[in-house]
Design a protein around this nucleic acid. Structure first.
Lengths: 242, 242
DNA sequence: TTGACATAGATGCGGTCTGCATCTTAGTTA
DNA sequence: TAACTAAGATGCAGACCGCATCTATGTCAA
């Protein structure tokens, strides 16, 4: 049967129901550690577990727009870094019905992330523990910011989160994605701390400085950070390459 | 409205119809150039244009399984490298109805690619011209293997193909994806030619040799290539790292 | 006023990796 | 047996990175 014949006779019920959703991994840095914003599921299935904020994709809505809408509705956020990650299509990933979900990664600077935890109704920040080094990949665990035990995630959301961490690590030093985790003006030390938090390692200061300054991404503002009790560092701004 | 309330009252028609499909970028190397397998659209819309082989996702079928089925049905292929690329969800990407498509990348060694062009009914190999260097990204064009003019692609399939080339270039030298374009046993020269075809550049032979041999991916078979009129090169086998 | 203090930011050095030119090796063929 | 061709190795210079260390510049307390 060709696609066109299929479409001419298309009846969703004849093939069963398939829904399309987006799930958003909203990440930030919290006390030098990667963190993610979760919601608590109130109804079965998996009531009480944490989940990624998500929602269904409208028929007159692009995938990007659906992810942006989820962020707006559930976190009151707009104009933040947002990129598609991967599409999860296991048949039983949701026990209620067949739901294919397009996962998105959203990034917030530390201050905005903390603010969203206060303002966003029901948004619960959780620290991400990454037990693997480099880009080995594998499961990650989440726990409450208040130093509790590990939290259980609903559905396949642990897989989605693990992939988000892996992708973020992979993209960090060949793309400009790290700047989405910083305010508009920042010091080189802050940039390094973001990289260290995501990579889960400590980095060499002079080497990091050179590497970053040799790229054409950083523009000195001429302004120095105020309020320090020591030599105030230069504030830089991210400049889009080319 | 919560997701659960949404689901309790879920009626596909109430929200309009949304179909989920997969489109497969089946790539190989042909005469030292990257090539892709296309089908000719016979019915409107966009009859006569070339398109990527694709199909709808069944309700009891994972995304990977749908992509594998498309390859089996349209190209008679199985057991080949297959990975998810990106999900395309523009609202009007298909004029008939809202179709969200999960794009896949499939890779074949040169001999299998050529064989598929003969065996696969209606599969037309086309050479890919990449007008940008490195990982700059941007549109690509396709033309008939028989040195014709550029071919027009249906829907947003040119975007999908462009993304496939960008991803392939990006993954080529930090992942083992290049070996999917080679037979089980191959020479270092063949490996280099694959890399050169994908990257669109010429590479330095001693540097390439050292880089590849220093990774723990290559295992010498002890066998040398037969049928050469010069010093026969060692045949290597890809060994999964770790 | 001045010196301790803390961090920013720079510098020098050695090891590693890469590009490049060149050399050697091992087959076939005339 | 010598020419020929491509495989495969080697030597070297420049770029990049990790690391230790040094200098610079602000605050703050005596």
């Amino acid at each position: 049967m060709s696609e066109d014949a299929f479409l001419a006779a298309y009846d969703p019920d004849a093939y069963g129901r398939l829904a399309l959703a987006v799930d958003v991994v909203l990440m930030g840095i919290r006390d030098g550690r990667p963190a993610v914003m979760l919601v608590r599921r109130e109804e079965p299935p998996q009531a009480g577990l944490r989940a990624l904020p998500g929602g269904f994709v409208g028929v007159t809505e692009t995938l990007d727009a659906a992810a942006a809408r989820v962020l707006r509705e559930k976190a009151g956020l707009s104009d933040l870094h947002l990129e598609q990650l991967y599409t999860f299509g296991a048949i039983d990933r949701d026990p209620r019905m067949r739901i294919v979900s397009v996962a998105y990664l959203a990034l917030l600077p530390e201050a905005a992330f903390t603010a969203a935890a206060r303002n966003g109704a029901g948004l619960l920040p959780a620290v991400i523990d990454v037990p693997w080094a480099g880009e080995a990949g594998g499961p990650v665990t989440v726990r409450d910011a208040g130093e509790g035990g590990p939290l259980a995630l609903a559905f396949d959301h642990a897989d989605i989160l693990a992939l988000a961490m892996l992708r973020l690590r992979g993209k960090l030093d060949y793309s400009a994605v790290g700047f989405a985790l910083l305010p508009e003006r920042f010091t080189l030390r802050q940039l390094q701390e973001v990289h260290e938090a995501i990579l889960g390692t400590s980095l060499n200061k002079p080497a990091f400085r050179r590497r970053m300054l040799d790229r054409s991404w950083l523009e000195p503002t001429g302004v120095r950070e105020a309020g320090t009790s020591f030599r105030p560092p230069e504030l830089y701004r991210f400049r889009r390459p080319r």
